[in-house]
Design a protein around this nucleic acid. Structure first.
Lengths: 341, 341
DNA sequence: TTGAAAGCGCTAACAA
DNA sequence: TTGTTAGCGCTTTCAA
């Protein structure tokens, strides 16, 4: 049986309440006594009993807010599942988890939600942000009020959030390059289609891909990086132009959306399955293309973890006072073929 | 706030004790009353409070035994980490988790450990078994005593274990075939080196690989499946023989151990990195070879999950009465290149 | 077949 | 500054 507050109280010749004050730095206690009690507790190997604490604190409102985009993509569904699992676990231990779904992640909307939560007496916030100066300032102001913030999927760099849970985008690009290098014949040409130049994650993936592929396969010619603004039509046009221009185009890497447009163009040109397509994100559509052989490899993220961990990190911080181990919690880079979906 | 037993009791006009008896099928209750109470509870959306239950049950000894091989491989280390995480979670809720490490998994040793645990009043057992008739009988006898058993990593087929947590070996073989198909040139020759013919997992991987590769790449010639008995020397000899015999040998798939022998042979023949090697298991050595480009792809298992889930499945069964959702809990087939280790 | 009550480890309000 | 006590939701024993 584990050591209890009562046992420590007896060993120290004081009351439970005093031990509680010592162990939780609640003040109203003689510092020397507190020190002595903590020493005894340590010697006895005291570990607070979660069930007891949870029970005693139930009714009190340790509230964690989560701001998330509703978009019904399978990725977001999985993120949501992770959030819900964490919510269940945390609520079983007496916490409250409020999930605020908003239709789009404009900085204004997110900030508005944050203010709502702050007014509602929220103790910690997890959010999937956009990189925006005002948002950064809001997060910093939360930190000043000792409301911890965890970002997930997308980070707000150099903000006071206590942790970011998401993918190492640069490494994801490198991994894609490694796969492309495996399947490209000698001297082939490769096209990169990105989303937005301004998007940090797109940029990192592109950089990782280009750097790694140039380094590992000098024989391969990487054509210009094109931007399709997550638009299938534009992506399709780019692909079509390029295959016409370069009849020996052998591979296309997409850092973001636009896969459908690309696949349709290739189909039209009779090159479907011939030009090697590697893409990101485990969307339903991408998975379908993967199954059909139109995409060779799909790089994914651990969506569940991106939902689960932020809530749990906040819970551990608020409930047990435990800080996250690192500022960045990178989720695994998942490689999918049609065989391990 | 969540619904409590007390609230249900009030709603039903009975006492807490009666509600408890109804909800947990403890008997000593009028069946009709019980039914009525359960209905009310369901309507009110009752969810038992874990903290309360844990607290009330603390002191009682819900004990879970885990039998595991000590072998200090990184895989087993991760399995152990998973076990330890589950142990911590379960013990926070008042359970006891006993981990019995044994140096080898001979059926006798495992059975002896099981008997020890059984005598010690263990309430559930997780083990990583060998497929053995006597062991199967032991597991079945445990089931008769209502001691649930979960197998992990390796299964005891057709035994009374309530769940198996591990890999779908056949699918793992198929996934390897898919990768081989991606990187093999037209008309190449592929060699399969397996471990033991009698090993179920080796057999399934081989079957999955051969079936899938023959189906998807009719141009590829799959040479005989050779058995190396997890011996590097034998595996090396096989590889050497084969590259001498077939100068156009393009790929080798290893279902089990022997990678080092194969890589050395290829090195000697000046074919290192040229003959495409795909192998299983994320051992330190394999990872090194992967980094060095001697292995193209490594197929892995979710080791952490294989340790974590068995304990949690038993805990949920014993603590909440919740049975595992399925008889087989397949862990993900992980594809690793040097970029996503 | 049912109700009443003690107690699990902890927190927090109140009393001293 | 310290002690005492009620109570969180549940299980379990004893009494009715």
């Amino acid at each position: 049986m584990a050591v209890t507050l009562q046992q420590i109280a007896e060993a120290a010749g004081v009351s439970r309440g005093t031990v509680d004050r010592a162990m939780n730095n609640r003040g109203r206690i003689n510092p020397e006594v507190a020190e002595r009690i903590r020493l005894i507790a340590k010697k006895m190997g005291y570990q607070p009993n979660r069930a007891g604490r949870a029970l005693a604190m139930s009714g009190r409102s340790l509230t964690i807010g989560v701001i998330i985009q509703v978009a019904g993509t399978p990725f977001m569904e999985k993120v949501l599942e992770g959030i819900l699992q964490a919510k269940e676990e945390a609520e079983r231990l007496g916490a409250n988890v409020l999930i605020r779904k908003i239709p789009d992640m404009s900085a204004e909307k997110v900030i508005a939600e944050i203010e709502e939560l702050r007014k509602g007496g929220c103790d910690g916030i997890a959010l999937m942000p956009v990189d925006d100066r005002r948002l950064r300032e809001t997060v910093d102001s939360l930190a000043e009020e000792h409301i911890p913030v965890v970002t997930f999927n997308t980070d707000i760099e150099d903000s006071a959030r206590i942790c970011f849970v998401g993918q190492d985008a640069m490494q994801s690009g490198r991994a894609a390059a490694g796969l492309m290098a495996e399947i490209m014949p000698f001297g082939g040409k490769v096209l990169v289609i990105s989303g937005y130049l301004s998007n940090h994650s797109n940029k990192s993936r592109t950089k990782g891909f280009v750097e790694e592929l140039s380094a590992s396969r000098e024989d391969i010619d990487i054509l210009d990086v094109q931007y399709a603004f997550d638009d299938d039509r534009i992506a399709g046009m780019i692909a079509e132009e390029m295959v016409k221009e370069y009849s020996d185009l052998g591979g296309i890497y997409l850092t973001a959306s636009g896969v459908e447009g690309v696949c349709e163009s290739l189909e039209r040109c009779g090159l479907s399955g011939k030009v090697r397509v590697i893409s990101n994100d485990l969307t339903d559509q991408n998975i379908r293309f993967l199954k059909e052989g139109k995409i060779r490899f799909l790089l994914g993220q651990d969506a569940h973890k991106q939902g689960y961990e932020p809530v749990m990190l906040l819970f551990n911080k608020l409930f047990d006072g435990k800080d996250p181990e690192k500022e960045f919690m990178y989720t695994e880079i998942v490689i999918k073929t049609k065989y391990n979906l």
